[in-house]
Deep mutational scan, measured.
Amino acid sequence: TETYTFDSEDQAEEFAQRAQKKGYTVEKRKENGKFKVRVE
């Protein structure tokens, strides 16, 4: 499980979609103005 942090929602969304296409489970959340994407 890895967590990635992005400054913009667009970046987080793009990353999450790519990860989902590769078959990963993706969980997105906003925390302290940053966008976190957890991938497993």
Rank of each mutant, 00 (worst) to 15 (best):
Y24V: 04
Y4E: 02
R18S: 10
E40I: 15
E14Y: 08
A19Y: 13
K30S: 10
D10N: 07
G23Y: 03
Y4T: 02
D10C: 08
A12N: 01
Q11M: 10
E13M: 07
K36W: 11
T1S: 13
R18Y: 11
Q11L: 11
K21R: 11
K34T: 07
K22D: 13
V39Y: 03
S8I: 06
Y24H: 07
E31R: 03
T5D: 06
F6A: 00
V39L: 11
K36I: 15
K36F: 14
D7W: 06
Y24L: 11
E2W: 15
Q20S: 10
V26E: 02
K21F: 08
N32M: 06
F35M: 03
V26P: 03
Q17H: 09
R38S: 11
E9W: 11
Q20L: 14
T25W: 12
E14V: 07
Q17F: 09
F15T: 01
V39H: 02
K30I: 13
E13Q: 07
T1K: 08
T1L: 10
T1D: 10
R18T: 09
G23C: 05
Q20I: 14
V39A: 02
F15S: 01
D7S: 07
Y24K: 05
Q11N: 05
A19Q: 11
A16Y: 09
E27G: 05
R38H: 08
N32F: 07
T5H: 06
D10P: 06
T3L: 08
E14H: 08
S8Y: 10
N32C: 11
G23T: 01
Q17L: 12
R18A: 13
T1Y: 14
D10F: 09
A19K: 07
V37E: 00
A16S: 07
E9Q: 06
V26N: 01
K34F: 10
V26Y: 04
R38N: 06
T3Q: 06
A16F: 10
D7K: 04
V26A: 06
D7H: 06
E9K: 05
A16I: 11
E14L: 10
Y24R: 05
K36V: 15
K28C: 15
E40K: 13
K30M: 13
A12Q: 04
E13D: 14
K30F: 15
R18C: 15
F15K: 01
E40F: 15
K28E: 04
T3W: 15
G33L: 03
S8N: 12
T5Q: 06
E31H: 06
D7T: 07
T25S: 10
A16E: 03
E27I: 13
F35S: 02
E2A: 14
F35W: 15
K21D: 13
E13S: 07
K34S: 06
Q20Y: 09
A16Q: 03
E13W: 07
K30R: 11
